[in-house]
Design a protein around this nucleic acid. Structure first.
Lengths: 202, 202
DNA sequence: CAGCTGACAGATATTGAAAACTGTCAGCTG
DNA sequence: CAGCTGACAGTTTTCAATATCTGTCAGCTG
């Protein structure tokens, strides 16, 4: 049961791969490096993952699934839909901004990997859109939101791209960014509300 | 007055540079190429532009100013602000999409150049934000829009980034893109309106 | 003598040979 | 005999030599 004798599992390989990616970056992380980190020959790694691309894809999926899981907790809350939507979008932005600011190299690695695996990323986005749609559907059911949930979920996701697409990571450190995020979310929430608000007619 | 005898002006150099960029792409477009296209020595080009970077910057600015000018025409129209805003955003999207689809290589060249000249691009964006702000200010004056024009202009620009940021160009050819654009713009316009009322009254 | 040329030094890009990596598989090992 | 090893063929990456380019400037030319 000592670590070096432990059986070689897909899980252990994924952990070692993450470590190698963290250390060497995406360009220099080789299958040979991963095997060396595990104390096995690189042939053994190919027993669990058919190609290097498949291995990188699996690592990407793990990362994205972890992120998705945290947000799912917010989407499933019972608070009023408007607050929930705001919290969900804030959590998405905050998580990305935090990761990008904390360890830029690791975030760059992550960005390269997601760029390579559009299939997996598409699935992740579909997952997030599903969560958004749930919040909006609930809002429509409670009468606080108007508009078609699925279509509008996409619109909200697209409109907030600047605050979650890794491409914009370099701008997340700028001073005014939080105000810009708030302005966009405020505008979107105004558009989502079923009534014209407290102005005059109710 | 024959072309080869014509005096060498900054303007002629810029035209030749655009042509060389079109032909060779941004990576292989050298000052020597530009000089050869004009039938002069490369030393002469340096008489008008202190560095290669300055030359590329000038080309970029010309491109962006042309684009900006076309939109200014729409921003200055006298139609109702809601229609004008919609037209302006559509024109911005349409112009970019058209260029990206028409001649992808030239568009890629343009993208590389804008990536190099953040100074010039920032000025261009400030220009576009000014136009947007004007439309919104007019809308507020006429009582059809609420919210602070400058802050909201930024929010509208950010929220539509997916439809004008060159980074997303590869997605502009996808089938559903127009519907997604419409959904975002509809949502934003709902949020902008001063009252919750229907859009039938003029 | 205003404007252009072309040789030049230092910086950048290209090239091709050598090294490393990916993916396979026959055979070893516990 | 299930799982691992390491040599191997084909491909990609690295690295250093070579070529090209950038930016300058003394001197040529009309």
């Amino acid at each position: 049961m000592s670590p070096t004798t432990e059986t070689l599992t897909a899980e252990r390989i994924l952990e070692a791969t993450e470590e190698v990616l963290r250390r060497h970056g995406p360009a220099k992380a080789t299958v040979v490096d991963v095997a060396r980190a595990l104390g096995v020959s690189h042939g053994s790694v190919y027993r669990h993952f058919r190609t290097k691309a498949a291995l990188r894809e699996a690592v990407t999926q793990r990362w994205l699934d972890r992120a998705s899981g945290r947000l799912a907790g917010i989407a499933a809350r019972d608070s009023d839909p408007e607050t929930r939507l705001r919290d969900w979008l804030s959590a998405l932005f905050e998580a990305k901004r935090h990761k990008a600011g904390d360890d830029p190299e690791l975030f760059a690695t992550f960005s390269v990997l997601t760029g390579e695996n559009s299939q997996v990323v598409d699935q992740h986005i579909a997952d997030l859109l599903g969560q958004l749609t749930e919040i909006l559907r609930d809002g429509v059911a409670r009468g606080v939101f108007a508009l078609d949930p699925a279509v509008t979920a996409r619109a909200v996701f697209d409109a907030t791209g600047r605050f979650h697409d890794p491409f914009y990571a370099r701008e997340w450190g700028r001073p005014g960014i939080q105000a810009e995020f708030d302005a966009v979310v405020d505008l979107l929430l105004r558009g989502l509300r079923a009534t014209g608000g407290p102005s005059k007619t109710s």
